[in-house]
């Protein structure tokens, strides 16, 4: 299939914890660091709030990448929420691999409140990597798969039409 890449820009949905990474992104702003405008930040109180379904939903809705930012290990505002995030991410990454979603598309980064430059670096780096990977376009793929299924169903139906049916 040919993908429409004309003027395509990678879309990154980011989940940042309130205390470290969201604040680091604020610091990047206050320091006027320039980075790629491809990121949309959603604030959570703790990266531990991240339900893996959020990541799945983002991909399903057309995100090309998902970035999760939390406090460094040992620094969690809520003692150990970030360790729970790490555990969840380890499992989630396995699942994403099974779904054929490349590893670089889902990224967990520890960024402390003072690391504005790391926000800049990570966003730019991730944008570049996604650019190299190209669009994920899960919604498009869903449509395609649905169409295939529909065609298959039709085929089955035509075959069955000759036979008497008492379904429904």
């Amino acid at each position: 299939m040919e993908m429409k890449t004309n003027g395509w820009q990678p879309k990154i949905v980011a989940f940042f914890c309130n205390w470290c990474t969201y604040t680091a992104a604020d610091l990047a702003g206050v320091s006027r660091m320039k980075y790629a405008p491809n990121i949309r930040i959603i604030r959570l109180m703790c990266s531990g709030r991240l339900d893996p379904q959020f990541v799945m939903a983002a991909f399903a809705r057309g995100a090309d990448g998902v970035l999760i930012g939390g406090c460094h290990p040992g620094d969690c505002h809520y003692v150990e929420g970030n360790y729970k995030t790490l555990r969840r991410m380890t499992l989630l990454k396995r699942m994403l691999a099974d779904l054929g979603i490349e590893e670089d598309r889902c990224r967990l980064e520890w960024i402390s409140a003072s690391e504005g430059d790391k926000v800049k670096w990570v966003v730019n780096d991730m944008t570049e990597k996604l650019r190299a990977l190209g669009p994920l376009d899960l919604p498009g793929k869903h449509k395609e798969w649905d169409a295939e299924m529909e065609a298959l169903e039709k085929e089955v139906q035509t075959q069955q039409e000759g036979e008497p049916s008492h379904v429904h």
Partner: peptide, 17 residues
């Protein structure tokens, strides 16, 4: 979670995209 319900966050995800 008040102020961070699943519905609220899912709606944000949907809308930013």
């Amino acid at each position: 979670q008040n102020l961070f319900t699943d519905d609220e966050i899912f709606s944000e995800i949907e809308a930013v995209l």
